[in-house]
């Protein structure tokens, strides 16, 4: 499993932009928003949590189809399926690799972009915690969507159609947590919900994704 993780990470780095591309997209999105809504602090501050979460969500979505597509093309996915490593484990590792290459850089960059959008300082810790708790669920659900659409030629658009509705609960609780942090309220309730969704997703979705992969490899 560790070998698989190392291989995926190496591939992502070698392919170029594995780490940087998502963050660059995130930066562009955060830079474009003020052009759309105006540079006022009063206009930007209330929507900053939503923009940051939506940016993270879309940046995550962009790189989803790469989770299985390349391995499916060169046949290494079939090797994975026949290897002693259970396919569920392989899916989890792939999702983890996706999270490390896109989720983690996003989290590290998010405070900076929060400042760009005039997010007050007291909202930065909830922002970090919510992203840290929420993005693993995004990667795992994305892996599920990628597993379902791996055999399709034009799966990209369908993938977003399937995956985005699944992101709604995470998005709601993530932004709610930052908003409450911004207003100085108690963040425990959304935090617990967010953690619960992520834990449930990590526990159950690998099985669904592996089942979908097995169907696609049949």
């Amino acid at each position: 499993m560790i070998a698989l993780l190392r291989r995926d990470l190496t591939l992502a780095v070698r392919a170029g932009g594995g780490f940087g591309l998502g963050v660059a997209f995130f930066l562009i999105l955060c830079a474009l928003v003020p052009f759309g809504v105006g540079p006022d602090t009063t206009a930007l501050q209330p929507i900053a949590p939503g923009i940051l979460w939506l940016g993270a969500l879309l940046a995550c979505l962009l790189s989803l189809d790469r989770i299985f597509a390349l391995d499916h093309e060169d046949g290494s996915l079939d090797l994975l399926a026949t290897s002693p490593l259970p396919l569920e484990g392989a899916v989890a590792v792939k999702a983890l690799a996706h999270w490390i290459t896109t989720g983690l850089p996003l989290i590290l960059a998010a405070p900076l972009f929060g400042i760009l959008l005039h997010l007050p300082g007291q909202a930065i810790p909830p922002l970090l915690v919510s992203l840290l708790l929420g993005t693993p669920a995004l990667s795992m659900l994305g892996a599920f969507g990628a597993a379902i659409t791996v055999g399709l030629r034009r799966g990209g658009l369908l993938l977003s159609l399937l995956v985005l509705p699944l992101y709604i609960p995470t998005l709601i609780f993530g932004t709610e947590m930052i908003r409450r942090g911004q207003e100085g309220g108690a963040t425990a309730t959304p935090l617990l919900f967010l953690a619960g969704i992520t834990a449930g997703t990590l526990a159950v979705i690998p099985f669904a994704a592996a089942a979908a992969l097995r169907v696609n490899l049949r």
Binding site: I168, P169, I172, E176, T189, F193
Partner: peptide, 9 residues
């Protein structure tokens, strides 16, 4: 899950 999440929201 979304149904209960939007009640919260």
């Amino acid at each position: 899950l979304s149904r209960y999440a939007v009640f919260f929201w």
